[in-house]
Each structure stands twice: as structure tokens, then as C-alpha cells.
Design a protein around this nucleic acid. Structure first.
Lengths: 342, 342
DNA sequence: GGCTACATTGTTAGCGCTCACATTCACGAC
DNA sequence: GTCGTGAATGTGAGCGCTAACAATGTAGCC
């Protein structure tokens, strides 16, 4: 009787049943300290009896907080972004936030702007942008967000808090590992231009070679897909001077392994191969792939952490742009071995 | 001056600037027919000048529609679920809906209930549940949703609209392909028990064998991961009578290929292998994997379609549970060949 | 002209909640 | 006793929007 049938209960219904004012119900719901334990219990009981659930729209209307974080992602088909997204989701939920995700079809400044605009419609409190691409970082500038933004995998986006894996450092690990095995130099199949991760890996690769006084060959640019690794790997396979290659992700490394096999080049006897990402499949490639592991969910977690910090500071004082860099880790399997005698 | 600085513009601000009532602004925003073209233009101009954006909470409060669809997903690390989610996201956005995603950590009835509860807090209008597991389907029953629910990959969930790939049919394609190549029978490395997709693939495999009068060996149960394919594939490799295996997903097939290689068994000369999913890597396995392709995004799209249909029917009349089944497709590569002479 | 019909716009009343403030009561200090 | 204090609760207003209805203008028609 306390709730007219046909509509779901509201605070006033709970209040009536518990014999208190709607405000007291609100206090119980929000954990306000000054409520008698007994009253609290009575309200709780009423809530449960009616199956009451607070109307989030009404609450958001007055508090101006929706509890929603907007996420702009790109190509969640790739292992890395998908994992990062999962990490973000975990962290957000743990903090009591909801996630609204938009996946970009193409990486253009306009699409980034549109995605953020779309999310703004939903009154997200802030954005986490998975920004593996230079264009995305630029698009962020256009979007002129009036809300906090954190970039994940966003390289060194200026004026923006960033959570990222140490791509360059990971690349250095890979190259040093190969040099230590006695290879004269290391060839590189890179990710596509304008992808920040690709650029940083190229830079790290170059740095490690130069530090060792090794010659720096021209890098070849793929598109992350196995197919391009196959094509470019095939090209390198024909060059008998190549004894070591560092491939910018595991999928392309897979393609390269295939091309090498078809060319009759043995891995690791003739050529050593190192990948990047450590996808679950890498361990079972032919041969099992030495690669650089990234902790994606850690990155996602820190992305959310940085955003929440910004949200707490609220409007006025925007904190200094912070960076959180997660180290990469080399996983040695059997696709690498000592350089063959010349 | 029309907007007091320090707060964002509201409808009344736009109305004042355009010299109309706030209701007319609302009409323009909602595409109401009876507004003079000229008025419309004036309002539009005012909106743009002020950078006005409608407050979605206020709107949701009065319309009782949030425009948010809740998605319950599980293990988006796996290729299939991740792809399905992407398809759902595309379709939802195209229809003007937002998505709120919760990813389950473990598949228990309780976690499913909790996830739906969590989404209910946000007043989602309906649920799309990626339900590849028997437990999830059961959990749906507990959750006693007062809102429409659609299961994706949910097998034959009773009383629930379902969008799914024809798993059984796909398995039959795989098995028939192998039998046609002259194999006496086909061994099966299955997915984990209680996974609906796994069960349907087992059923299809059995059906095809029985239809052909072939003996039906005991299936082996893996966990989708490459490691289990490796372990179980190794076991089958030791059995010289095995000439063909159908592996329930590509990741396990990769593990199996590895185990066969290590055991000195040649693929496809000694043993033929067929996978399931057609992940991007499959084409570059050693050897390139014959597999069954599923159109995940199509499934996601139809999941959203079914939900939207339910939402339109609104509260009263719940439509008859509909099913949309997307056919699977065999992709022949070089991991399969004619049976070796006995 | 007077009436109807319809297009166009304005007015008013909430949606369900939280915030600011008012009120009540109990208790101890003086 | 009186007053101050703080805990516990209630009251009223208003967040920004849409829905329902009212009011106006405008044309068409007899």
C-alpha cells in the first residue's frame, strides 16, 4: 500500500514506511554520520522491503556528478588496447565509477573530437583516452575539454597526465639481449608511423644500437598485422647478413617467423627474433617467441588513478601534468640464440 | 552577459538570447515539428553561441529514459568476446545509445547478479549479456531483471532473446571437411565444460561423425588457452591412430600444433588440424590453420537489434523470445590434407 | 463577419533528489 | 534555572528539463 502500484518506489515512499522524513532516508543512503543507529536500521529495512533504488538521474541533477568516466579507445581488436581497456574497467569499477566507452573506427582528429563530444552528451566527469597515435593526442587538443583528461599510452603528450609503458626501455631490453648474444646489429620491423608506441620502440632500438656502437640499419614499417610482418620479414629473410630482428609486436613477429620458415631460414639458428607485447599465443609460436611483456592492466589502473586525482582537485586548480611509467620486462624463450659464426 | 560566468549555460539562457521561451528551445532540441524555421535558426544560433549542451540528467529524470544499455561481458581477453563487444558498441552508438560495460572476473551466478545490480544503479534501460557460459544464463534468472535482457552467445537460453553464431553447424563443417578428406574419424579437443560454445561444438562434432557412421572418440577438454591445447595435443600426438583433430578454438589449436611439431608429427601430412574462430594470427600459424570463422560483430549487432526491439515494445507486452543465428564459415588453409595411407 | 482548425508559442507543474537551513531535544556548565 | 552545544531530524527550495495544457495568431471557409 505504501507504494502506488505501477511505479517504482521513491524516497518519499521509503520515508513514509520508515516513519521518517525523506531527508533522513537520503542521509542513510549517503552514509551521513548523524543518524541514530536504530533509525538507520528502520530505514534500511524499509528500503529492502520496497526494493527501493535511488534514482541516479535525480541525484546527478542536483550533485552535478554523474559518476561516469568516458573512455575513448581505438581498435580493441589488438591485444594491447583490449587489455588496457580491461584494466581501466577494473579500476573504475573498484572506485565506484561507471564507464562509457566509445571505440574509434578511424584515427582522425575529427573522430576523436566527435567521440569526446558524444561522451560529453552523457555528462561524463572526465576522460581516459587510449591514445596510441599521434593524431589522437592532437585531437585531444581540439576537443578543448572542460573536464579532466588522462592519456593512456599517450607518449609524452604535453600538458596531459599520462600513464604508459616504458616502450623505449622495452625496446632497449630487446636489442641489448640480442647484442649480448653476439649479433653485430639488430634489424627492426617497426609499427606504423605516427603510432607513438611504434615511434618509441624505434627510438629505443636506435638508442641501444648506438650505445653499443652497432650499425643502425633502416627500419621497416609494418601495420601491426601479421600480414605485414610476413611481407617485411620475407624481405629481411632474403638478406643473408641479417642475423637478428626486433619486431615491434608479436603479431608481426608471427608473420615474420612464418616468412623465415618459408624461406628456409632457421630460427634461432640462423636468425634470432624478438617480439613485443607477450600475447598469450607467443609462448606457442614456432619457435616460442622471446618478447617484451607489458603490464597493460597496470597501465589502465594508473590511468584511472591519475584521472581520479584530477577529479578530486575539482575545477579550479589543475594539477601539474603527471606521468606514470610502467617498466617493460623481457621474456626470453627460444626464438633467440647466439649469433651464427660469420 | 546572457550567461552568468562560472556556470555552464542552461536552456533558459539560450531562450533569453534567442528571445523565445525555454520550451521552444526544448522543441528545437527534440526536433518537434511545429517550430517556425526562422525561430529554429535563431535558437540554433543561440545554442552555438553559448556552447549550450543539454543536461542529460535533467532530461533523464523527467523522461525516465537514460539512453544507456548495460553490457555484462566476460573475459574480454579472449578474441571472441572482445570482438563481440566491439560489435555491440558499434551498433549501440549507431542507434544513439550509450554503453556501460561491466566485465566479470569470475563466472558465478553471484557475480552476474552483482554486475546487473551495479548496472541497475545507473538506470540502464536494458541489458546485453555476453553469456558464453551456462552459469551466466542461470545467473540471469536470479537477477530477475525488470528490464529487457538479451543474451549474446547464450545458446538456447529459455525465455530469452538470443543472438548467437551457429556453433554446432560450424563444428559440423569442420568435421565434414576432414571426413571428406578421407579421415576415418576426427578427434576433438573441446573447450571447457559448461561453456555453451564448447558444448555446442562438441554436439556438432558428434552429430557429424554419427551422420557419417564414423566412430566417436572421447573428446578431451581444454580451457581455451594455448597451454591446454599443447598438453592435450601432446597426448593425441602419441596416439599414432589419430589422423585428424578438430580443436575448439584457434588458441588451443596453436598449442596443439606446437605439441605435434615437438613430437615430430607433421601437419598436415600425418595429422590434419582444424581450429575455430579464425583469429587474425591463424593465417600465419605453422602451418596456416584451417578454421571456422565466426562473424562476431554481426552477432553483436543483432544482440543490440533484439534489445532495441524489446525496448520499443516498452513495458507491457514482452515479445516472444526471438533467436538470431549467424552461420559459421569454413576457411580452408594448409593444416588439413588427405588422410595418410594406413 | 464569424467560426473552426491548425500552427506556433508560452506557462505551469512536477520528475526525485540533495543542500541549506530550521527545529527539536538532551545534556552539561555555570 | 538558564544558556550553550551538538546530535538528530524535518522543511523548503531548487537542480534543468519535458509534458500537458493554455494562449495566441493565422488562415480557410461558409
Amino acid at each position: 500500500m505504501s507504494v502506488p502500484s505501477g511505479r517504482s518506489p521513491v524516497m518519499a515512499d521509503v520515508a513514509r514506511l520508515a516513519g521518517v522524513s525523506h531527508q533522513t532516508v537520503s542521509r542513510v543512503l549517503n552514509g551521513h554520520p548523524n543518524v541514530k543507529t536504530e533509525t538507520q536500521a528502520r530505514v534500511q529495512a524499509a528500503i529492502e522491503e520496497l526494493g527501493y533504488r535511488r534514482n541516479s538521474s535525480a541525484r546527478a541533477l542536483v550533485t552535478r556528478r554523474t559518476g561516469v568516466i568516458g573512455v575513448v579507445a581505438f581498435d580493441t581488436t589488438l591485444y594491447g588496447p583490449a587489455q588496457t581497456l580491461a584494466g581501466i574497467e577494473q579500476a573504475a569499477r573498484a572506485a565506484g565509477y561507471f564507464l562509457s566507452v566509445v571505440t574509434l573506427q578511424r584515427v582522425t582528429r575529427q573522430e576523436v573530437s566527435e567521440a569526446m563530444d558524444y561522451l560529453a552528451q552523457q555528462a561524463v566527469e572526465g576522460y581516459v583516452v587510449i591514445a596510441p597515435h599521434r593524431t589522437v593526442v592532437e585531437g585531444l587538443a581540439d576537443a578543448a575539454a572542460d573536464r579532466p583528461v588522462v592519456a593512456v599510452e599517450g607518449g609524452e603528450a604535453p600538458d596531459l597526465p599520462v600513464a604508459t609503458v616504458d616502450q623505449g626501455g622495452g625496446a632497449e631490453l630487446a636489442v641489448r639481449h640480442l647484442l649480448d648474444l653476439g649479433h653485430r646489429t639488430v634489424h627492426h620491423i617497426a609499427g606504423p608511423r605516427h603510432w607513438l608506441e611504434a615511434e618509441y620502440r624505434v627510438a629505443g632500438w636506435r638508442r641501444a644500437l648506438e650505445a653499443a656502437g652497432a650499425p643502425v640499419p633502416e627500419p621497416l614499417f609494418g601495420d601491426w598485422r601479421p600480414r605485414s610482418g610476413y611481407d617485411l620479414g620475407g624481405a629481411l629473410a632474403r638478406d643473408r647478413s641479417v642475423t637478428a630482428m626486433f619486431v615491434a609486436n608479436d603479431q608481426m613477429a608471427l608473420g615474420a617467423l612464418r616468412a623465415l620458415a618459408e624461406a628456409g631460414v632457421r630460427v634461432p639458428e640462423d636468425v634470432s627474433v624478438v617480439g613485443f607485447d607477450d600475447i598469450p599465443e607467443a609462448e606457442f609460436f614456432t619457435p616460442p617467441l622471446t618478447t617484451v611483456a607489458q603490464d597493460f592492466s597496470e597501465v589502465g589502473r594508473h590511468g584511472i588513478r591519475l584521472l581520479l586525482e584530477r577529479l578530486r582537485l575539482a575545477d579550479g586548480a589543475s594539477a601539474a601534468p603527471a606521468r606514470h611509467v610502467v617498466p617493460a620486462r623481457l621474456v626470453v624463450r627460444t626464438s633467440t640464440a647466439a649469433a651464427p659464426r660469420a
